[in-house]
Design a protein around this nucleic acid. Structure first.
Length: 436
DNA sequence: TTGGGTTTAAACAATT
DNA sequence: GAATTGTTTAAACCCA
């Protein structure tokens, strides 16, 4: 968004803040319009409510947040319409230049793109946004991207396309909202996103910070856990901040050790290529575009098996039980209004196809889900579709079964890894922190 | 070393 | 025709 980027950000009012947690507590977003088409209260909302443990009022921190915000982006207008009163002075700036936000304003947010997109969408009244608005939301809340290389937009689109947490919603044809579709959160994976957010950035408890930096000490001397300063979590609900339960601390500790906790510690200088959001990886191992016909699936179930969720492209349609097992989709095959659309047709066709043994064998070699793709003969397909689709090379049933088992095992293993990795990761980070 | 997951870059098609 | 949007592939990187 080259030319308008800066100016756009310059008139941003950052504060209105965030969303999934808006429904918690006393949030008062009077600007939010009620969209009749928007989904009503969802089962997952209970989960959000259960995140109350994440919240603790802290005007002081909120004020600090503003301070940091101004440091990061002095041009940003700080909207205090949330009624949060001004509060005492923020912690003194550290002398460590690495911790000085004024010197290091271009710090990449410790959120994965998936989280960013999720927040953007959830922050919209109708819970659906066009890509452009997702860009804007990210720009508004994370000024880092205003000066970041433009590739991040590509990454956003890439995520939208490949991450099955997000689904495309056809616009009402009567609407002329420009090109593109609306994107919303796939209900089935909303929990994953929430979990990813819970495990991202903010909130190390003081007790896990055994060797705080100078700024950290200064900060801790006056307040509780830190947040990414521009994080929407930072404010909302009148200065609500997030705290973490014991179970999540390990991730927080990790984030701390990686200097991703700005409020306290250095907002690390993270070039766009850095892997700042690794924390949420395992939670969001869900990359694959769902077919339009799946969109009616409202199952709040979250697969316990990340592998079930993960594969680019339309591989879920492979019919592999291990891929489908977690979340039955009632009515998922119901034809949509756009069934005659090529893409929909293709996906439905894929869904009915058996897995291709040759491909799966290839997958076994590569062991990489991003390659998980069904090859189908699609002479009638648009070029776009033909490009990546080849006729099957084999139809060996045994291979299919073996591959299915492999996939299943891989899923189980990945699931176990996720659990153990999270634990081990946090412990390692704590050790590293101690070393430093 | 291997495997899993994320990000980035790039190419290309489709749409406005 | 240009710009934007959406899809796909590949590679690099990080972590366990």
């Amino acid at each position: 968004m080259p030319p308008s980027k800066k100016s756009e950000v310059s008139r941003v009012s950052v504060v209105s803040g965030w969303s999934p947690f808006d429904r918690v507590g006393t949030q008062q977003d009077t600007t939010a319009k009620v969209d009749p088409a928007a989904p009503g209260p969802r089962p997952e909302d209970e989960e959000l409510t259960n995140l109350n443990w994440l919240h603790e009022s802290s005007n002081l921190l909120n004020s600090f947040g503003d301070q940091v915000l101004r440091s990061v982006s002095p041009v940003m207008e700080i909207d205090r319409s949330d009624g949060v009163p001004a509060s005492p002075s923020p912690p003194p700036a550290t002398s460590d230049p690495n911790y000085d936000l004024k010197q290091n304003p271009n710090c990449k947010p410790p959120y994965s793109f998936s989280c960013l997109i999720f927040m953007a969408i959830e922050d919209s009244p109708s819970k659906r946004l066009p890509v452009k608005d997702i860009y804007n939301w990210i720009l508004h809340h994370f000024p880092y991207f205003a000066s970041a290389p433009t590739g991040w937009k590509n990454s956003v689109r890439h995520n939208l396309s490949l991450n099955k947490c997000f689904k495309k919603v056809d616009k009402d044809r009567s609407q002329s909202m420009g090109k593109g579709s609306l994107w919303c959160i796939e209900a089935e994976y909303r929990q994953n996103l929430i979990q990813a957010l819970k495990k991202t950035p903010f909130h190390p408890h003081a007790q896990v910070l055994t060797t705080p930096s100078a700024s950290l000490q200064a900060y801790q001397s006056i307040s509780s856990p830190p947040l990414w300063p521009v994080s929407p979590f930072f404010r909302r609900n009148g200065g609500v901040l997030l705290q973490v339960p014991q179970g999540v601390i390990q991730n927080g500790a990790r984030m701390m050790s990686q200097d991703v906790f700005p409020g306290i510690r250095p907002l690390p200088i993270m070039p766009i290529g850095s892997r700042s959001a690794a924390v949420s990886r395992s939670v969001l191992g869900v990359c694959r575009k769902r077919s339009e016909s799946d969109l009616s699936c409202d199952s709040p179930l979250v697969s316990s098996d990340p592998k079930e969720d993960h594969t680019y492209s339309s591989a879920k349609s492979s019919g592999l039980p291990s891929l489908e097992g977690g979340a039955p989709c009632e009515g998922g095959d119901a034809p949509s209004d756009t069934e005659d659309d090529d893409r929909v047709w293709v996906k439905r066709e894929l869904k009915d196809l058996p897995p291709d043994a040759a491909y799966l064998a290839q997958y076994k070699r590569r062991q990489h889900w991003t390659k998980a793709k069904l090859w189908v003969s699609t002479d009638s397909l648009p070029l776009k579709k033909r490009r990546t689709q080849k006729p099957p090379e084999s139809d060996d049933e045994e291979m299919k079964e073996a591959a299915g088992s492999l996939l299943h095992l891989a899923g189980v293993r990945a699931c176990l890894n996720n659990i153990t990795n999270r634990t081990a990761k946090g412990q390692k980070e704590q050790k590293d922190t101690l070393k430093n």
